[in-house]
């Protein structure tokens, strides 16, 4: 079972739609412990990505991901711009020249993407950031493939782990990003970046696991 180039495009488009729908929700989460811009930032970035996608739709998956990443870097701003930008640029480096992704390819790409976010932002697990959704998701995906699960099941596991990671951020005191300025007052609020990261992995599962038309 593999993920086709069209399926990759569908994932990006699906996530752009999810962000459009959740823009205000993400901004509300950010208003509680940040500066009320995460939804707007992500929306601006992925709308720009949507207009760029047709220019690379016939390119390899690596080029596609890199274009998404560069577009995010130059349109999102904030912390999320360089972080999600790096995530996609790393996905791109890991998938250079590929026209479809095997389960192992996706695992390697996801690992490169998550490592890229950790290297750029220097956040540790438990700091209450997007890393708290991404790292468990990567772990769950690896565990699923190690136990020979099929791709759809592994994608579902990853999305679920991201969701749990996102929910786990709520009681924590933030140690990175803007939310850390609040000290104890950041506890009791879900992290906006972990929320968008969960939505990203959920969109992958929704697009690739449930829409078998795209997954050959």
């Amino acid at each position: 079972m593999t993920i086709s180039r069209d399926a990759v495009v569908d994932w990006i488009k699906a996530f752009a739609d999810v962000i459009a729908v959740n823009k205000d929700y993400l901004t509300e989460l950010d208003a509680a412990i940040g500066d009320a811009d995460h939804g707007a930032n992500m929306h601006r970035g992925f709308q720009a990505v949507l207009t760029k996608l047709p220019t690379v739709a016939d390119k390899d998956i690596g080029t596609l991901f890199k274009t998404v990443g560069m577009t995010l870097v130059s349109t999102v701003g904030g912390a999320a711009g360089p972080l999600y930008g790096t995530f996609f640029i790393q996905l791109g480096s890991a998938t250079t020249g590929k026209l479809e992704l095997t389960m192992a390819d996706w695992q390697a790409a996801l690992e490169a993407g998550v490592n890229g976010v950790v290297m750029r932002g220097k956040a540790n697990p438990g700091d209450k950031t997007m890393v708290d959704a991404l790292i468990p998701a990567l772990g769950a995906f690896k565990a699923a493939s190690a136990s020979n699960a099929a791709l759809p099941a592994a994608l579902r596991d990853a999305a679920q782990a991201a969701e749990q990671g996102m929910l786990a951020t709520t009681p924590w005191v933030a140690r990175k990003g803007r939310a850390s300025y609040l000290g104890e007052r950041s506890a009791g609020h879900q992290d906006p970046g972990a929320t968008s990261s969960h939505l990203l992995l959920k969109a992958a599962a929704d697009t690739w696991a449930d829409n078998s038309g795209n997954v050959g």
Binding site: D35, N41, S74, G78, G81
Partner: peptide, 11 residues
């Protein structure tokens, strides 16, 4: 200048 309260971008 970035968007309101949002850092500008590297480009």
């Amino acid at each position: 200048p970035g968007a309101v309260f949002t850092s500008p971008t590297p480009d």
